[in-house]
């Protein structure tokens, strides 16, 4: 299984999980879809709407 890391959702502001290296992710709380950038290989962040 791929490693998962947390990012903060800009819509509901809860933390959601992103699989390592993924460039698109969906917040499991509110269903928002985001484009993801990686600050470090372990730290994803929302870059903009998908």
């Amino acid at each position: 299984m791929a490693e998962k890391f947390q990012a903060r959702c800009l819509n509901c502001r809860n933390r959601f999980e992103v699989e390592k290296g993924n460039e698109i992710a969906e917040c499991h709380h509110c269903g928002s879809k985001w484009r993801i950038s990686w600050v470090t290989p372990e730290q994803p962040k929302v870059q903009g709407p998908a």
């Binding site: 600050v39 962040k45 929302v46 709407p49």
Partner: peptide
């Protein structure tokens, strides 16, 4: 990213 990081949050 420097302070431009704030842009991603504010424009989204």
């Amino acid at each position: 990213l420097g302070t431009p990081l704030l842009y991603d949050v504010s424009y989204t």
